[in-house]
Design a protein around this nucleic acid. Structure first.
Length: 469
RNA sequence: GUCUCCUUCGUCUAGAGGCCUAGGACACUGCCCUCUCACGGCAGCAACACGGGUUCAAAUCCCGUAGGAGACGCCA
């Protein structure tokens, strides 16, 4: 049997981090078994579904590299099929028309709440005949759920779960306007699409028992279910916007790499022994549902940052350059010259080990192309004492006249000798020199920077601070 | 309220009755490296929710208790 999984988001907002993980698990599971991963947009809520949200979901998935098979299926386009199934359920005696008004239902729930009963529909139209239908009320179609016995579910993550059928309620399958509810549409679509494994958030776990009633009523084979725990915020409560329930594009904008996001999300709730850094190839090879945990996990920005920093270090320099280019060109208000790109490319190795995100990388790299004079903060400025400036001036003269080749190691040696002759240590000139070259107290290694900037530019930068007074 | 699920360091987790004096990673602390900041290396801190069983032996199995989460819509 070929494995077929699906990701079925409702386009009512961005692709948030929990959904992204669900998509990732479905993707990996399908790829692991050489099966198919399908995308279905659940847009039956006509009021809340938007084209922008559809776009956000699709671009989010693409960014993460979770490519799906075939064209996406839009659930709303299948509403006739859903109606057909609802009617068939009525014909088979597994569903019935209900004429209760929304006000009536509201009242029913309030009363149940007061009396401490479950907040469920009481089945008042279950046994009434349609001749008693009130004038002008359009009915909904409700499931005629089993009232006795138990329903068993062997969930691939949660294990065996049994629920008494007395807790099931007669949920709405078809709304009074003829549109299907989620409960009906998922089941029909999952069945028609040949989904073999439904991997979704465990907020759907209790729904599953109700959905099983539809599979059974229609005589359809049930798929395998795997309900994965939700992601919680750092405080253990449901993930909210305050702590990370952002769209994946927000993480992209914060400077995270898609590989890092996937790796982090994968390890949240799933493990493979002590492995932490897992490539996509390896993830596909290793992933299955056996090692998905059953308890909810908390979103931890610090760990995400760490994983991102790792992938940043591994990433190719040219790729990183292409990621920071738009930022630099925007600040400078012009395209970069080839020699500037060249500098950045050479400097990338030293820059990327010092950055955790692309945003940090952008800022850290700016000095390589920034125009003189640098804007310096107070601390950097305070390093440039009179004594320091004299020292820099001497150093400049020394470097100008020296015949050494302008490369990291000889520069290091040369400057070393220079300070020692003055009875000083390298650290005595290091910070002033750094401020002159980069405008900052923090940067890649001095001599690496000097080599990359070249003799002319390095001396120009030193001259620039020396001349200020 | 009713039903269902969950519970190992602060966080993510390893752990399928003896390999557990409970391992790894992040975070944190200290040291080393050192021109700054990082990186890297070394070391440290730190957990089986609680109470009963079963067993020669339990983090692992069973039962309670507590705490947490989810579901209970003509939302998905």
């Amino acid at each position: 049997m070929t494995v077929v999984t699906r990701f079925a988001p409702s386009p009512t907002g961005f692709l948030h981090i929990g959904s992204a993980r669900t998509a990732l698990f479905n993707y990996l599971f399908a790829r692991h078994f050489g099966g198919q991963f399908l995308l279905r947009i659940e847009d039956t809520d006509r009021v809340r579904s938007t084209p922008e949200a559809i776009e956000a979901i699709i671009s989010g998935l693409k960014w993460l590299g979770l490519d799906w098979d075939h064209d996406p299926i839009f659930q709303f386009e299948r509403y006739k099929r859903h109606q057909e199934v609802a009617l068939e359920m009525v014909a088979k005696g597994h569903a019935y028309y209900c004429y209760a008004t929304p006000e009536e239902l509201e009242e029913m729930r309030t009363l149940a709440g007061i009396e401490g009963r479950p907040l469920r529909y009481d089945g008042r139209w279950r046994h009434r005949s349609q001749d008693q239908a009130p004038e002008g009320v359009k009915p909904v179609i409700r499931l005629k759920a089993a009232e006795t016995g138990e329903t068993h579910l062997k969930d691939l993550v949660q294990g065996e779960i049994t629920v008494s059928n007395t807790t099931l309620d007669d949920m709405v399958l078809l709304r009074s306007d003829g549109t299907p509810t989620y409960m009906l549409a998922v089941v029909v679509d999952d069945h028609d699409m040949g989904i073999t494994h439904v991997i979704r958030g465990d907020d759907h776990l209790t729904n599953t028992f109700r959905q099983i009633q539809i599979y059974d009523g229609m005589g359809w084979e049930r798929p395998q279910f795997a309900h994965i725990p939700l992601i919680h915020g750092p405080d253990g409560a449901k993930l909210s916007k305050r702590h990370g329930a952002l769209g994946v594009e927000a993480y992209r904008d914060m400077g995270f790499l898609p590989e890092a996001m996937c790796n982090y999300l994968l390890r949240l709730g799933w493990s493979h022994g002590d492995d932490e850094i897992i490539s996509e190839k390896q993830a596909i090879e290793w992933f299955n549902l056996d090692h998905v945990g059953r308890s909810p996990s908390r979103f931890d920005m610090a760990k995400l940052l760490n994983v991102n920093a790792h992938y940043l270090k591994e990433e190719e320099n040219a790729k990183l350059l292409s990621l920071i280019l738009p930022f630099l060109e925007k600040i400078l208000g012009r395209d970069l010259f080839p020699f500037e790109k060249d500098r950045l490319l050479k400097g990338m190795a030293g820059l990327k080990v010092r950055s955790k995100t692309i945003l940090e990388l952008q800022e850290a790299s700016y000095f390589y192309v920034a125009p003189l004079p640098f804007s310096r903060d107070e601390k950097a400025q305070s390093i440039l004492t009179e004594a320091a400036l004299i020292l820099l001036k001497d150093l400049k003269t020394e470097l100008e006249t020296s015949e050494i080749s302008w490369a990291e190691t000889p520069l290091h040696e040369n400057v070393q000798v220079f300070v020692e002759k003055k009875g000083l240590k390298l650290k005595d000139i290091a910070q002033p020199l750094r401020v002159a070259l980069t405008g900052s107290l923090v940067s890649p290694g001095l001599f690496e920077v000097m080599e990359i900037l070249g003799k002319e530019e390095s001396l120009r930068r030193i001259e620039n601070v020396v001349r200020e007074d």
